Simulated assay, not measured.
Amino acid sequence: MKKINFRILTLLLAVLIFGCNTPDDGNYVEPITTYEVISGEWSLMNLTMVDEVAKVNNIKPNEENLSTQFNFEDFRIRFDVDENNKPTTYVVLGDVPPLFQLSGFWDLNADFQPTNSGAIVIRLYSDEAKTQLKDELYLTSVPRTNRQMELQIIRRSGGTPFVSYKFKLIEEI
Rank of each mutant, 00 (worst) to 15 (best):
K2D: 13
G118I: 12
Y35P: 15
L93H: 13
K130T: 11
I38W: 02
P98W: 05
I120K: 08
L133I: 13
L137Y: 01
T160E: 08
G104A: 04
S103Y: 07
D25G: 14
S157T: 12
C20G: 09
V50A: 00
L102P: 03
A54E: 01
P87Y: 04
F105M: 15
Q132E: 09
L13D: 08
K3L: 12
D51K: 02
S141N: 13
E64Y: 00
I173C: 10
D135R: 13
E171F: 04
T10D: 05
S39A: 14
L137I: 08
F6M: 14
Q132D: 10
A119P: 00
R7H: 05
L13H: 09
W106Y: 08
L13E: 01
F105P: 12
G19V: 15
N57H: 12
L102F: 01
T115C: 12
T34E: 15
I120Q: 13
N71E: 02
N58D: 11
M149G: 07
L16Q: 05
G19K: 14
K60S: 11
E128S: 12
P98M: 15
A54H: 01
D74S: 10
G158M: 06
M1Q: 03
T145F: 03
E41I: 11
F162P: 01
M45K: 07
L93K: 15
P97N: 09
L124D: 11
I154P: 07
V56Y: 03
L16W: 05
P114H: 05
V81D: 08
N116L: 08
R123A: 07
F6D: 10
M49P: 00
E83F: 07
M149C: 11
